Simulated assay, not measured.
Amino acid sequence: MSDKDKDIEILVLRHQLPLLQRQVGKPTFTDSDRAILAGLLHHLPKDRLRRLLLLVRPETVLRWHRELLRRRHAAACVPRRRGRPPTIQSIRTLALRLARENATWAYRRIHGELAALGIKVAASTVWEILREHGIPPAPERQSTTRADFLRSQAKALLACNLFEVRTLTRARLYVFAVIEHTTRHIRVLGATAHPTAEWIVQLGRNLLRDLKDASSKAKFLIPDRDSKFTATFDALMTDAGVKVVTTGIRIPRMNSLMERWIQTCRTELLDRTLIWNQSHLPHTLREYESFYNEHRPHRALEQAAPCRPLPTPITQQAQLTHLKVRRRDRLGGTLHQYQHAA
């Protein structure tokens, strides 16, 4: 483009600018528009700017330029990272693990344990990690609920109870059962129409013999406050190294596992079976005991049974495509047990 062409273009643009100013209202400038105009025009003297045909006043252009320089200076002076560097994720995870596994440890105790492991962090950093994840101070974490206590002592706990069963002739029978907290293994020890303290003591002897044969490490037995659990029964258990811990008055939740099993037994068996007499009931309960311990899955055991671990998952697509599963009816079809066909 020649100089003459440039002069013509400039004159045309100058002529068009007043036309636009007369027909268009106040224009709106974006940040990029301000930056471009300020960058191009700040080199010109102020008196020269006043003679130019512009959409804004010269003072506005200079103000834009000062704002552009201020932002550039502010961006250059801001540090890349504010404050101390972030704590490594593995250290944060370890601090949270120590807090959850040790309810009595305050943040300074956790800080000391990390220092003993050769991990250097500030005590305030440990406090901040616990606060961010909603972990309360140690005094508020020291309270142990009964559920937490039962979980921590499950391997040493047994629970027992008597429950009533009505026969077809409306006769009352009483069943004595014991459950292990850790494995959910159930033992139905006997059924009678006339439960006495001597009968309970004899069943206690049978229970101790079964525990000895199974090499059980149970140390506590939880019965309710039934008068049939006499001092003789307590002394029998104490001599065998099993301490009797009686539940509170009218607090069935203190023996929740046993109460839950009784409900399961009623729902899955007794409410769907006609019990003829006292000889029929033990046979029915033994069959259900075998089904419960050897086949019935439990959520607390990750769907395994008390006496049967989960099998290895099937991974071959051909086996999954052609499943052959047969049903075994127990107690006349009241209970259904499924297994792969041979």
Rank of each mutant, 00 (worst) to 15 (best):
Lys217Ser: 08
Pro223Ile: 07
Pro223Ser: 07
Arg225Trp: 05
Asp226Gln: 04
Ser227Thr: 09
Phe229Asp: 05
Ala231Arg: 11
Thr232Lys: 11
Asp234His: 05
Asp234Lys: 06
Leu236Phe: 01
Leu236Ser: 02
Asp239Glu: 12
Lys243Ser: 13
Thr246Leu: 08
Gly248Arg: 09
Gly248Lys: 02
Ile249Tyr: 08
Arg250Glu: 14
Arg250Pro: 00
Ile251Met: 12
Met254Thr: 05
Met254Trp: 03
Ser256Gln: 11
Leu257Gln: 10
Met258Trp: 02
Met258His: 06
Arg260Asp: 10
Arg266Glu: 02
Leu269Pro: 12
Asp271Trp: 01
Arg272Trp: 09
Leu274Ala: 11
Leu274Thr: 13
Leu274Lys: 14
Gln278Ile: 09
Leu281Ser: 03
Pro282Ile: 03
Leu285His: 02
Leu285Arg: 05
Arg286His: 09
Glu289Ile: 00
Phe291Glu: 09
Glu294His: 10
His295Glu: 15
His295Gln: 15
His295Pro: 00
Arg296Cys: 05
His298Cys: 02
Arg299Pro: 03
Arg299Ile: 10
Arg299Asp: 11
Leu301Gln: 09
Gln303Met: 15
Gln303Asp: 14
Ala305Tyr: 07
Ala305Gly: 06
Ala305Asn: 09
Cys307Thr: 07
Arg308Gln: 15
Leu310Trp: 10
Thr315Asp: 08
Gln319Val: 01
Gln319Trp: 08
Gln319His: 13
Gln319Ala: 08
Gln319Met: 11
Leu320Asn: 07
Thr321Gln: 11
Lys324Gln: 13
Arg326Ser: 09
Arg326Val: 13
Leu331Ile: 14
Gly332Trp: 06
